[in-house]
Design a protein around this nucleic acid. Structure first.
Lengths: 142, 142
DNA sequence: ATTTATATTATAATCATTCTAAACTGTTGA
DNA sequence: TCAACAGTTTAGAATGATTATAATATAAAT
């Protein structure tokens, strides 16, 4: 739950001019209690429908990518035709519900630490992501 | 290392007619010692260049998707703009080298078992995938 | 052989994303 | 205050990967 003036400094601090459009997008993405997942489409729809305002699609793409590059968003790739962004930038894993296409954050008490025993020589690990796909079990009873 | 007649039965058994094109694609994908990763583009290029033969791009897409649906290939999503397929259909995880854009299979001695402590109620786990992104460590020395 | 269902093909259509170049805005400092 | 400049937004065009179309070809069944 941040307010406008905080977004202004946040943007300035990362070398992004606090424009009307970026502040609106900050408000939509970060002015809430809980983090969430969204697609570019979701975001564009959200802005036009709930705010009766129009931000060019190109600007939405630019801003989301700028925010991602600055580390304010994480991108989560589920399949080649669906790209999600996450306002939760802490290290965490995901469940993906194949029935509803919904992404759900994992807590530490749901997935234990992933034990990487050997890494590629000369390389540094930049991230470790676990994706657990789940689906209704009506077909396959346990 | 399978041979032609084996591909014919493999295809027949899964309800796919053993056409010239599908057999050629089987040969390219499965007639080798080691499994590997490829993109649709790689495969199309491979066929035209090394076999001096042309299979329509539409057929390559159709066939790869048919093989995936039948469980002969796995799709691995790294990012929204790159879709890889894997001829290794056993459960395993991946390293992704961000410098070279190469995907590398993990062995069991590289990543320990992922411990899923809690699942979403009423859902069944269909897969657990770990992706470890690595990059050159020249920027960040340990 | 004939028929029928399936598969292949070139090409067109689609869709998400990126590019372009003109208009606009935030910032700086005279 | 305001001119000047760099950074930003915008609509619309371009791109590129994937999918659809519909005509032709092929495999399997009768």
């Amino acid at each position: 739950m941040l307010k406008n003036s905080e977004f202004v400094s946040k943007l300035r601090n990362s070398g992004l001019r606090p424009t009307k459009q970026r502040l609106k997008i900050c408000e939509v993405l970060f002015n809430r209690d809980k983090t969430f997942h969204f697609t570019i489409n979701d975001l564009a729809k959200n802005i036009t429908e709930n705010f009766n305002e129009k931000i060019s699609l190109a600007t939405i793409y630019n801003t989301v990518h700028a925010f991602k590059d600055k580390g304010y968003l994480k991108e989560i790739t589920i399949s080649s035709d669906k790209s999600y962004f996450d306002t939760n930038i802490t290290k965490h894993h995901h469940f993906y519900d194949e029935d509803t296409n919904l992404l759900i954050d994992c807590n530490d008490n749901e997935i234990g630490r992933v034990n990487i025993k050997n890494n590629i020589t000369g390389k540094k690990i930049s991230s470790v992501e676990v994706l657990v796909r789940v689906a209704s079990d009506t077909q396959n009873q346990d």
